[in-house]
């Protein structure tokens, strides 16, 4: 009896998981199909661009700076055992551009913007604002979702680029002013080992993560129901699923790109 109930629960979860994938795919298809046709809501796109590209800069910048500093310190502690301190600049650069820059930027954006997208769209859903929009002959997916997906896709790489620069700067400051590196040597070691693909691969990851964060944020807002509690639950689901998706995609893309 216990085994039957257990299997029933596992089956129920699995079907729920497949249903969620199907629903997200349909939602994505509808968003792209309606969003790619005119009219285009340029004001909405500009507002979202400002939210993602400009207002996220402080939090992304701080995260990058602290990560760059911590990375240089950790490398110093580890590499000194093997007298390999000279590798610190290139390791900080590779870690920031290939991995930490895109992942941390996406996680910060998921926490800051993904949650706010879900809360905003979810509140609109439960207070019938989305129904009101439909009644005023405006396709709510086109108006609310597509601009967010587009700006997420285009502006996350920009944020990742800024993150890379600030992270490397954090490593430089630690290396030069705390670990006693010569400034020009540090800069030379950083750039001599840098390849264009290191930066590009990070930007590609950023675009994929940005699109995913916005898709999850919008989808969970759009399917939320049941008043304030439902919106709260949707917001939590949005951040959790975005974070998991970012890490999963990171594995897949790293495997494919390197």
């Amino acid at each position: 009896m216990f085994i039957v109930k257990f299997l029933e629960k596992v089956g129920h979860c699995f079907i729920g998981f497949l249903a969620a994938i199907g629903n997200i795919s349909l939602f994505l298809f509808r968003s792209l199909a309606t969003g790619s046709r005119p009219p285009y809501y340029w004001k909405q796109i500009a507002q979202q661009a400002l939210q993602i590209g400009y207002f996220s800069l402080p939090v992304v910048g701080m995260t990058a700076l602290f990560t760059g500093i911590a990375m240089a310190l950790q490398c110093s502690a580890g590499f000194s055992k093997f007298a390999a301190e000279t590798a610190i600049p290139s390791v900080v650069m590779i870690a920031m551009t290939r991995e930490l820059g895109p992942v941390l930027t996406a996680l910060m954006v998921a926490g800051r913007l993904g949650a706010s997208m879900t809360a905003e769209i979810g509140t609109m859903k439960v207070t019938e604002q989305i129904d009101a929009m439909t009644m005023l002959s405006v396709n709510s997916i086109k108006y609310l979702v597509f601009p967010r997906l587009l700006t997420g896709l285009l502006l996350l790489p920009f944020l990742v680029f800024i993150d890379d620069i600030i992270g490397i700067l954090g490593g430089y400051l630690t290396g030069v002013y705390y670990l006693g590196f010569n400034s020009s040597n540090y800069i030379h070691n950083t750039f001599s080992s840098m390849e264009m693909w290191d930066v590009l691969s990070g930007l590609i990851k950023g675009a994929a993560f940005g699109f995913t964060v916005c898709l999850m944020g919008c989808y969970h807002g759009y399917v939320s129901r049941g008043g304030a509690e439902g919106v709260g639950r949707a917001t939590t689901n949005s951040v959790v699923s975005s974070s998991i998706m970012i890490l999963l995609l990171d594995c897949i893309l790293t495997f494919l790109l390197f």
Partner: peptide, 22 residues
Amino acid sequence: QREKFSALLKCGVLFQGGALFD
């Protein structure tokens, strides 16, 4: 969808909570 939106323009709704865009 286009015909539906055009037909909906001829219907007005006063929702229970107003449903004004915040």
